[in-house]
Design a protein around this nucleic acid. Structure first.
Length: 925
RNA sequence: GGGCGAGUAGCUCAGUUGGUUAGAGCGCCUGCCUUACACGCAGGAUGUCGGGGGUUCGAGUCCCUCCUCGCUCACCA
């Protein structure tokens, strides 16, 4: 055998920096991540597909830990399926992110002292496009740095010509089906972004405000009504006061009128049972239809006027129907400033009764956190109820599952109460609404293609000024990225529906639920069968990591310091199902050194292997004659089997058989931390700690047995590397290509090598476990008595009470070298006596190892220790005896449980006997 | 306010249909530079399983109740 000096091959330390970028390029050059639709069963091929569409990051985004986590999860799953033989496709892309991107560019302009209105619409859009073209690819390049195995030939962008076509198609189709309409109603308005928002984009947060009680005098001078409001400035737009029709306090006043202070308008007192809760505040509600959604409904019911008293920017103004309700001194004043002024004015008028502290939910813009204002306006809406039905049914029918399970209830709850979706945004950056108006004949045209003339009268057509909600393009993502609306697209045929959707719970409603609705609406089929909602990256105080809070970690810093694999390992190992990942931004070493250390361990196993096994290809374990395999070999091969089974169970099943999840598989799989821990345990605690150690003396001895040990070691390391490839692709690729194992059918890259499978020839190996047990006990003994490491000890094996005396003897004869090497303890099979002063190790087979330690150990100490042990055992034994003499237990408990308890009783009784003898010999009484 | 979830070792979490003496990783303590690895090896300590009640032969596990956190929804002006 030619020994290649491995030291020259593997440097003492793994160096990610010099490895990763080059490897990634090799993968790309080999086309490993490019999916072939022709191979899909759905397109006539012979492979299952596995498809994930990436939640598109904002085109202006820069990689943060959240992206790192999200994309690593997707990559791990995709790489796993790719090894399992699926035609795997991970579609990458970016989102034009309407409001977010427009805000970024507007901020740039502000730096130049300009606004978007100075540029005008066309120039602004051109400028934004340019900005996106120049800097938009950043995040995608960064995703490559974390090893993402995306199919970059299919990179998509929500504002690309192809996807824009899909957006128009979707809008027109929904309109044709009567599911899109123009509505005049109160919507959420962000006075900073100058656009309307959907319900989901206006986020609640509790705030301590004030409840102002204001007295409105009756016009006939016979008294007054006190109303309560949190937004006194809106009183200027009041058109009525409503009371409950059965409220005795106000019943007699219904139909009378009040004089609105400051505005000096005369408003009626009306009765409304639906909109008024007589127990809240004073039981009398001011009605402000243009600036409150609830009041809008009451206003509509009672056909009241709807004056607007706020400008789009949120300043006081006499808008539509307002006449001169807003007095001159308040015009142009900011709404919050105006609130103070109105309160002062009411005080002067003696109309302010009192101010109570009041906590209530206030809605904020999800992009800029400005308090949103309810505002009456015209917007386009999607009718959601009909779309929600199949989306609800799919989850109820288990065609789609949501992990963790608890989110399903949240999803169902939301869909059941779904309200129409406002899709108009008064922005410039986005897909312009494909609706044209004719100012001549009033015709409204919805069209797939741009039109210049009114199709009815031929007059000039004017396109709607607004753009669509960013999420209106996002909800088409699973099929628009695959070629829809072109029904003949081979990608669409081969890869839709996709498989898993991996994202954070924050966008369950914004995106996930709508994608499911969109999938049914436009494709007639659910877009995926699994929604995996992962946790959030947080700091040690459980605060979500964010750049603005300054508690972020830059993934690229981590990569520079610890390598990509350490980053990936850390987030995946920390990711329990649905659990958050905690990292310390102030102590990267604490967060990432365990990952780095594990990689070092892998590296060193590789170094040992290459040094000791050499470069010559080893014999495949399948072809080794079974009688040549020793206990340790069979043991580790079985442990590998178990590790594979546990990894499979943690990860799968990958998809529902027959399209519907069975009860037993519904919430299984995608336990990434369990998978990682299993692989780690196998590599470190089994392969390295035990098997590799056990091979040292065999390999040194040379000969046939040495070759067997080398073969098994290489085989198991190969299996371990394959199990780990999805998590740590770079280091596994680096080590794997140097393994001296047969190349046939192996491929050139571990990234596309077959996922390991179990070999049922290798079953549990209890006799090797007995050797491990002895080693552990002797080690403990050495530590207990502080025996110097250099001191060899001699012990006897007493098999007199053993259940398999010959078996035990043979284990200790065969594994003697191994045991001695790890413990510096020689064991011969001369029978000793249990009473001998020293230590007795009881093995699980009943045999004892007697270690005479006279002159070495402290007899008093050992005596006390043994007495303590005996005492503890007595307590537990009496509890056990009590249980077994209780007919309630023996009659009702399952037979196997009772049997186990009886077995235990036997063992413990024997142990008690042994300890008693030992106490006698040690303590002398 | 509605709905949901969580409270197990200093920290992060496992604990399958109730059934051995409740586990893991990290951290901590002790001893070791043992020829792959000190980014390592070996050993050790630590829990009235949030409180209280109940069902049961038996409860971390099931039921009730209280407390504390978290998520999510919501037009109480």
């Amino acid at each position: 055998m030619t020994q290649i000096p491995a030291q020259t091959e593997l440097p003492p330390q793994y160096d990610p920096a010099s490895t990763e970028a080059a490897l990634y390029k090799e993968w790309l050059d080999a086309g490993l991540f490019t999916a072939d639709p022709a191979k899909s069963r759905r397109a006539g091929g012979d492979k299952d597909t596995f498809v994930i569409v990436m939640p598109p990051p904002n085109v202006t985004a820069v990689l943060h830990m959240g992206h790192g986590l999200n994309n690593t999860v997707q990559d791990v799953v995709t790489r796993w399926r790719r090894m399992c033989g699926d035609e795997a496709l991970w579609v990458p892309g970016t989102d034009h992110a309407g409001i977010a991107t427009q805000n970024v560019v507007e901020k740039q302009l502000a730096g130049e002292g300009k606004t978007r209105f100075d540029l005008g619409r066309d120039a602004f859009v051109a400028r934004t496009t340019e900005f996106v073209t120049e800097t938009g690819g950043t995040i995608l390049e960064q995703l490559k740095a974390i090893g993402s195995s995306c199919d970059w030939t299919r990179t998509a962008y929500t504002l690309s010509p192809e996807l824009s076509k899909a957006v128009r198609e979707a809008f027109v189709q929904l309109h044709e089906r009567g599911l899109i309409y123009r509505g005049h109603r109160v919507i959420h308005w962000c006075s900073r972004c100058l656009t309307s928002l959907s319900d989901e984009e206006a986020e609640h947060s509790d705030e301590t405000g004030a409840l102002y009680h204001v007295s409105y005098p009756l016009t006939d001078g016979t008294g007054s009504i006190t109303i309560a409001t949190t937004r006194p400035e809106t009183m200027l737009a009041d058109v009525a006061v409503a009371v409950h029709p059965d409220d005795e306090r106000y019943k007699h006043l219904i139909g009378k009128t009040l004089t609105l202070p400051i505005a000096n308008a005369e408003i009626p007192i009306i009765a409304d049972a639906e909109g008024v809760d007589p127990t809240f505040g004073t039981g009398a509600v001011k009605i402000t239809p243009a600036h409150d959604a609830n009041d809008f409904e009451m206003g509509t019911r009672h056909k009241l006027p709807m004056p607007v008293i706020l400008s789009p920017e949120g300043n006081m103004a006499n808008g539509a129907d307002a006449g001169s309700r807003v007095p001159a001194e308040l015009l142009g004043i900011d709404r919050f400033e105006a609130r103070e002024r109105v309160v002062q004015m009411l005080k002067h008028l003696n109309a302010l009764v009192k101010i109570d502290a009041h906590t209530h939910a206030v809605r904020h813009c999800y992009r800029c956190d400005t308090v949103v204002e309810p505002r009456l306006s015209d917007q386009w809406f999607v009718k959601m109820k009909p779309l929600a039905e199949p989306a609800l049914q799919a989850v109820r029918d288990r065609k789609i599952r949501i992990l963790p399970e608890r989110w399903e209830a949240v999803y169902i709850n939301w869909l059941e109460g779904i309200r129409d979706w406002n899709i108009s945004r008064q922005l410039w950056w986005g897909h312009r609404i494909p609706v044209w108006y004719c100012d001549g004949c009033g015709e409204v045209t919805v069209s797939r293609d741009d039109i210049a003339k009114c199709p009815k009268c031929g007059g000039p057509a004017r396109q709607d000024e607004d753009v669509l909600d960013t999420w209106f393009s996002s909800w088409l993502w699973p099929f628009s990225t695959l070629g829809w609306p072109d029904r003949n697209s081979i990608d669409l045929k081969a890869f839709y529906p996709t498989d898993d959707l991996v994202t954070a719970p924050e966008i369950l409603f914004f995106w996930v639920a709508r994608m499911i609705m969109g999938g049914f609406a436009f494709m007639g089929e659910a877009p995926f069968h699994t929604v995996y909602l992962h946790g959030t990256v947080r700091d040690m105080k459980h605060v979500k990591m964010s750049k603005s809070l300054g508690n972020g970690i830059d993934p690229l810093d981590v990569i520079a310091l610890y390598g990509t694999d350490a980053l990936r390992y850390t987030v995946i190992a920390g990711l329990g199902l649905g659990a958050d990942v905690m990292l310390d931004p102030n102590d990267l070493e604490k967060s990432f050194s365990p990952g780095r250390n594990f990689l070092t361990k892998l590296w060193n196993i590789g170094r040992f292997l290459l040094t000791n096994v050499g470069g010559e290809t080893v014999q495949p374990v399948e072809t080794i004659s079974p009688d040549k395999l020793r206990r340790a070999d069979r043991w580790i091969l079985n442990r590998l089997n178990e590790a594979i089974a546990e990894c499979d169970a943690a990860l799968g099943p990958a998809r529902p058989r027959g399209g519907v999840w069975t009860e037993s598989e519904l919430y299984r799989g995608l336990r990434l931390s369990e998978y990682t821990e299993t692989a780690r345990r196998f590599v470190w605690n089994e392969l390295a700690d035990w098997y590799l150690e056990s091979t040292k003396s065999r390999i040194a001895a040379g000969g046939d047995d040495s070759a067997v040990a080398r073969a098994v070691l290489a085989h198991c390391f190969d299996g371990a590397l394959r199990l780990l490839q999805p998590i740590v692709p770079f280091i596994t690729e680096t080590l794997w290509r140097r393994l001296p194992i047969a190349t046939e059918g192996r491929g050139n890259f571990i990234a596309v090598a077959p996922w390991p499978t179990r070999n049922s020839n290798f079953t549990a190996e209890p006799e090797f476990d007995l050797a491990r047990e002895a080693i552990n006990s002797i080690r403990q003994l050495r530590a207990d008595y502080s025996l110097p490491p250099g001191d060899r000890i001699h012990a006897h094996l007493d098999t007199s009470s053993s259940t398999n005396a010959n078996g035990d003897t043979s284990v200790f004869a065969d594994e003697g070298d191994f045991i001695t090497r790890l413990t510096r303890c020689d064991i011969d099979s001369a029978s000793g006596s249990a009473g001998e002063a020293g230590a007795t190790i009881l093995l699980s087979t009943g045999s004892r190892i007697i270690v005479p330690l006279a002159g070495v150990i402290d007899l008093d100490k050992e005596c006390r220790k043994t007495k303590g042990e005996l005492e503890k055992l007595e307590t537990q034994l009496s509890a056990l005896e009590g249980r077994l003499s209780n007919p309630g237990f023996t009659d009702r408990a399952p037979a196997n449980v009772v049997a186990a308890e009886r077995q235990k009783l036997t063992e413990w009784t024997a142990r008690r006997e042994q300890l008693t003898q030992k106490v006698v010999s040690l303590c002398g009484s």
